[in-house]
């Protein structure tokens, strides 16, 4: 068998074709202090400069060995472009949403998404960064771009506790905001594909059953996801934080190619429910082991995840900025030895 390129292996895996080994990579943020020290490109500035953004992202591929380059480092790019006030953060703190332009118990009309979001905020920086990454790593290394999903967009526009109340009190407005968020995200994601991204990751932590009722997820959020997965012009995956076991039956019908899960969701259970519909990505604990554990603990957790059948070995959530680089390398070593 001819050796697969990293991109071919990832694409085949996501599309449920047989491969020689599971890819090892991150679909969530990869900026760590160790990598910043190696590249000399630091947060928060690296979020605002396409070259810095690209170089820091590439370092997770070159220095750790992750088999993809993944951008960006926060969940604020699209929300900033949609008018949210953001806080830049610092070297070890991600950029975050500070202000919510539509925060009101009584919903303000949001209307239909129509503005040209692609020229707003940092979106041009992201599109430029993808081109730089492609130039530097060549055609064979996949580029993964992520952005906040519709529920997270709505929670950024409205403020999370207000949005939670809308799930019961203002269902119509909620739906308008989710559609608005989905349409904005689709436009952004398709521009990322056009710029050269190979995989798009929808990151929707606020859709987690840690917050909302799985029944509401199924009735309100799932149709929005169906619409998204239909309209995205490239391979796309979904990440939701927390224990998402209760929404796995809904997610089976979401139309995405892969599902990124945290360690709170069991790989075996997820695989049993999802069958051959979505590939499992995960689920090494980014807090317990990668940040606070040892090389050996990460290594063991990776082996367990692979034994349980994870299709792509990945951190369960964004890397903590203070994650030691050797704990990331443990993932590469574990995957390599497992498939030796």
């Amino acid at each position: 068998m001819v050796d697969l390129t990293l991109k071919e292996r990832l694409k085949k895996t996501l599309n449920d074709k047989k491969v020689d080994k599971a890819p090892v990579l991150a679909v969530t943020q990869t900026g760590t202090k160790d990598l910043m020290n190696l590249t000399k490109y630091y947060w928060p500035d690296a979020n605002w400069n396409p070259k810095a953004l690209a170089e820091l992202a590439i370092s997770a591929h070159r220095e750790i060995g992750f088999e993809a380059v993944r951008i960006p480092y926060c969940l604020t790019v699209l929300l900033e472009a949609l008018g949210c006030e953001i806080e830049k953060g610092d070297t070890t703190r991600q950029a975050a949403i500070r202000g919510h332009p539509y925060n009101s118990r009584k919903p303000m009309p949001i209307g239909k998404f129509s503005e040209n979001v692609l020229i707003k905020g940092r979106i041009p920086i992201m599109l430029e960064a993808i081109k730089i990454i492609r130039d530097k790593v060549g055609e064979n290394v996949p580029i993964i771009a992520g952005a906040e999903g519709p529920v997270t967009i709505a929670s950024g526009l409205v403020e999370v506790t207000t949005l939670m109340r809308w799930f019961i009190r203002e269902k119509e407005a909620l739906n308008d905001y989710l559609k608005f968020g989905a349409d904005a995200m689709i436009e952004y994601a398709n521009a990322l594909f056009e710029a050269g991204a190979d995989v798009f990751a929808v990151l929707d932590p606020v859709a987690s059953p840690e917050l909302i009722n799985p029944r509401d997820f199924n009735d309100i959020v799932l149709p929005i996801y169906n619409d998204i997965s239909n309209k995205l012009k490239g391979d796309s995956i979904l990440h939701i934080c927390g224990d998402i076991t209760s929404i796995l039956p809904s997610l089976r019908e979401s139309g995405f190619l892969g599902l990124s899960i945290e360690e709170k969701t069991d790989v075996k259970k997820a695989k049993d429910t999802l069958g051959d519909k979505l590939r499992i990505i995960g689920n090494v604990s980014s807090a317990s082991t990668m940040l606070n554990g040892t090389y050996n603990e990460v290594y063991e957790e990776c082996i367990t995840a692979l034994e349980k059948g994870t299709d792509i070995l990945a951190p369960g959530c964004g890397l903590a900025p203070l994650t030691p680089i050797k704990n990331c390398i443990a993932m590469i070593d574990a995957r390599n030895n497992y498939f030796k």
């Binding site: 506790t161 109340r165 809308w166 019961i168 059953p209 917050l211 909302i212």
Partner: peptide
């Protein structure tokens, strides 16, 4: 059986 939206209300 109850989630954050229900609890907030």
């Amino acid at each position: 059986e109850m989630f954050v939206p229900e609890i907030l209300l």
